[in-house]
Design a binder for these strands. Sequence first.
RNA 1: GCCGGUGUAGCUCAGGUGGUUAGAGCGGCGGUCUCAUAAUCCGCAGGUCGCAGGUUCGAGUCCUGCCGCCGGCACCA
Length: 641
Amino acid sequence: MTKYYLTTPIYYVNAAPHIGTAYSTFVADLVKRFKKMEGFEPVVLTTGSDEHSRNVEKAAKAADLSPDEYCTRMVTEFTGLWKKLGIDYDHFIRTSDPKHHETVRWLFERCQSNGYIYKGGYTGQYCVNDELYINDAKPGDPCPECGRPTETVTEENYFFKLSAFQRRLLDLYESDPEFVKPDHRRNEIIAFVQQGLNDLSITRTNIKWGIPAPAENHHVFYVWFDALISYMSAVKDDNLWPADLHLIGKDILRFHAVYWPAFLMAADLPLPKKVFAHGWILFEENKMSKSRGNVVRPGPIVDVTGVDALRYFLLREITFGQDGSFSYDALIQRYNADLANGLGNLASRTLSMIQQYRGGVIPQSDGLGEIAEVARGTTEIVLDAFNQFNFSKGLEIVWAFITVIDKFIVERAPWKLAKDQDHHTQKLLDETLYTAAESLRIICGWIYPVMPASAQNIWEQLGMPEPMANIKVADLHWGKLAGGQKVGKVLGVFPRLDAAPAIAKMQELETSEKSRQAALFATTPAVIVPTDSKISIDDFSKVEMRVGQVLSAERVKGADKLLHLKVDIGEPEPRTLVAGIAEAYTPEQLIGRKVVIVANLQPRKLRGIESNGMIVAASVEGGKPVLAGFLEDIPIGARLK
RNA sequence: GCCGGUGUAGCUCAGGUGGUUAGAGCGGCGGUCUCAUAAUCCGCAGGUCGCAGGUUCGAGUCCUGCCGCCGGCACCA
């Protein structure tokens, strides 16, 4: 027996789970069920929570909770949802778990004794929100990711010699095209690594909520060194490493495809077999984000449609690996077209005819050979598609088969056959009913990984004795349905939904779910992470801001966002400035305009042009900068205080 | 700016190595059966295949240029 070990990302506890989190987890659950069908044993799925960070530390403090209490509360949100969604995971690893701490230190020491760890100093800008060190930023710069202010940090910490692994990583991608999927992501990773790799700072001294480094307790491991290792710590005692599959979102690919294998190489440990990065779920074409307020939660949806409808929708509608959109409309449409009219109706008509024409007993027959042949071919394609993570293709082909059976039923017209007692006609009716029922049984097998509860439901209505959890690919062979078997009670699956009220209900539930979660984490700072540090008036007065007038402006060659400006601030010579506002303002708009300049910044070279100062602009996350200005007239050179 | 991808019916997408009337699903319209969840099944819907050139007897399918969108990197308030 071959084991199969797969993981979801361990989810960051800064936000309650949403539909994107559920997507990764659905796929993991699907793959687990599919691999079991294929005969892997054991098949083990790990998920978990990524808890250590300064952000969490702060949020917990703001909520007047210990970090652990805060995380526990959030973890409950996750585990509660996974239960509701029927996720069959084996381990939920928390990075705060002592077992995990131990593994991280163990792995660090292995890297260290192999010579890939050294101590170095670091001074630079750090974004608390994104937990990101920003190269090249200067004090006061906002974070390029989120636009919030960065903090200047100086510390001594441990570095990981990532630079030593460039060659070995490239060899890995080259020799194993299956390591990073999909292919276009693999190409991106190769391009990234080819550009050269910088060593990674892997510890921090300004955080307490984390895993202390061995021998130096004031050092705490940086989030990625910490988090990735959870995939090992979850199964440390089970002899399951290496993982066969890491399912992740595309936003964390670099950590999994570059850093993680490098850590493992450094520690002389086996590498995971595959990292598959899927896309994002957009809401009606837009990226979901807390600040946009368009986050969709899975709970309210499944309360209306059932879990399997959401699973089906996400896997059928979206090509796995690409971005896709979710909308209530599209969900209901697919539900009615594919699930209610398609599968649900086929189950209903088939079972009902067996009930009416054969007293609820599956007739003895081999079924129609031609249909058996189509089923065999479909099995082949479906298994192949699922093995390649092409779930939408697999489902598409299953639904094509459903159409074949619907056509077959209409052609045979069992309701006419039933009226003729002639022996031959009755045999034909037997064959027809058996063919439809056996098709339905095999369809259950195909869709079980995607829609376990519904497949099981139909399975039972067919009177199948074994639970579907035990099904293997061999059970997909035609003819396994036993004639003489009594069908169960016919209940129907996927009742048709009336779009307008269904959508209204989902939105209503969404609203209340949103406020429930908001109340749960009311004290969590929603958008702005407050800075600890306050500055004195003296500090402020060090900043010399002056009114200037733009004399000339032109685009900087080779940069999308940069404008080269000459600004008169009352000095003998105009200032030369390079400002990153080209996406918001054309040069023409700026000439003659009065702007606010930080005049006493250290000069900085950008794209070969020395910039003497900074133009003051306001911006929000994802938005374009807006220049500061005045409502009344003010002379050039005036100082802001 | 560099690298990669992409642009086909209202929507989502198929269309190896160029070749008769460019396809599917959904939606829409018309018809049909009645076992079934007002479901099934049948038929219809006629899209400059992003734009402009080029190669060719012949190009969504190859080449060049341009435009749009997406992603990665660089860059940035």
